[in-house]
Design a protein around this nucleic acid. Structure first.
Lengths: 238, 238
DNA sequence: AATAATAGGTGTTGATATTACACTTATAAA
DNA sequence: TTTATAAGTGTAATATCAACACCTATTATT
């Protein structure tokens, strides 16, 4: 028996990528959605998406789709889940791999976003979404909460320099709850990846808040034991 | 513009499902692997897998594939990750959605397993695996650790009644470390989903250990706030 | 019948982490 | 000069976690 050229008697499907794009505008956590100007569901809101091509990996395809909409490259992107209900797309049986992404809301290319009739929506006030896109958004919210619980996520969502009240506001949006100022500072600073600068943010408050930066090196170190680190049932002595 | 019949100018791909099947034999955590009797990579070890058909969802397909091998229905199964590197399969570009599964090692149909030349391997002594299957296994191990950290996982891996030393042994296999007997008992019992029976396991130790059962109801309750519950950065007052 | 061998079962203490909580400070605007 | 606003700071009570050693029930052996 020799190696076959192709698999025989196997169904083939379009593989879609859909992107849940989180942004933060110093006030609310938001999602970037597009208004479809094509069928099916023309005129309705949906996640940005596209189909996998044969010359790109899943990650590359997701990245391409995101660049198409935002003009940004090297965006933070993480695979979320594969959605594959039979009737999820009325046109044809497809499966979709959802990715979520964190971007600085000020960074994206406004022209491109306009082309797609895209808009930022507050996470707690989304329009109806097509297909199973709401399920995808819910999964992404849960994942973001999980992620933010064990490492600062502001890296991608905030500008290079940011204040602790801004970071706290971001966390409060993510968890949809209020946090105690003193406890929040202690916890986030104890992770040891924030560096205080001597600059103060002017204009917003009268006193002004100190600006902080992420320490990328320490952050990567925190990330690398990617395993079960930080779990509530962590084995002792580790 | 009307709704199209099918998507045009879109590549289509075989969608594979691969299953990481965990079992536990009261001693070691194990994986069920098959020896391929077909090309490519005939004679080598791999995960059990198969291709998605157009009349089944991803979950259904994964479940079918698992039933094919084990004879078991209603197996615990969870989607893990989508693997989509361009050259992951030498025959043809495919994408694979990996699922992991927990089964009682004594339950499966031995005939079927024999047909597939399948074998249980200790998790820390696996043979070489084809394609990207080792990556899949590593991801499944990490996921199982994560899962076991916040809820007892013995449910699927152990017989209906089991002793605490057995459950501890399972956890020690999962984390590949030793755990303190007293601390383990306190923690696992404090989750409140184990019920002590009056029976003692005879035969293995001289004293005999009490048998426990899972309380399915309480367990489901523990599971339902599927969100960010149990995280180390959990919001206060919740 | 007594003894030895084996694994099961149990509590406490010190260290660390988490929560709740209120006042002072720097600055801009009035 | 006063006032208004958000920034910034510390402590005490509580809960959680890790470390640690001995007794018990039973079977097998003599």
């Amino acid at each position: 028996m020799k190696i076959p050229e192709l698999y025989e008697n196997v169904d083939r499907f379009p593989v879609a990528l859909d992107a849940i794009i989180f942004g933060f505008d110093r006030d609310n956590l938001k999602l970037l959605l597009i208004k479809r100007d094509f069928e099916p569901k023309k005129g309705e809101w949906s996640l940005m998406g596209g189909f996998l091509k044969s010359d790109e990996s899943l990650d590359e395809a997701a990245s391409r789709i995101l660049t198409n909409l935002t003009g940004l490259k090297n965006i933070y992107l993480e695979q979320l889940y594969g959605f594959g209900e039979i009737d999820r797309d009325p046109v044809e049986r497809t499966i979709s791999i959802a990715y979520y992404s964190l971007i600085n809301i000020l960074d994206h290319n406004k022209e491109l976003v306009k082309q797609y009739s895209a808009r930022w929506f507050p996470i707690d006030d989304l329009p109806d979404l097509i297909f199973d896109h709401l399920k995808m958004v819910e999964a992404a919210k849960a994942r973001l909460r999980y992620k933010a619980a064990r490492q600062p996520v502001g890296f991608e969502l905030l500008p290079e320099k940011f204040t602790l009240p801004e970071l706290q506001q971001l966390y409060e949006s993510i968890y949809e709850t209020d946090l105690d100022k003193r406890n929040f500072r202690r916890r986030i600073l104890s992770m040891g990846v924030l560096v205080k600068t001597n600059e103060k943010q002017k204009g917003f408050s009268k006193k002004g808040a100190y600006l902080y930066k992420f320490d990328k090196n320490k952050f990567d170190m925190l990330n690398s034991p990617s395993d079960g680190a930080g779990l509530s049932f962590k084995p002792p002595n580790v």
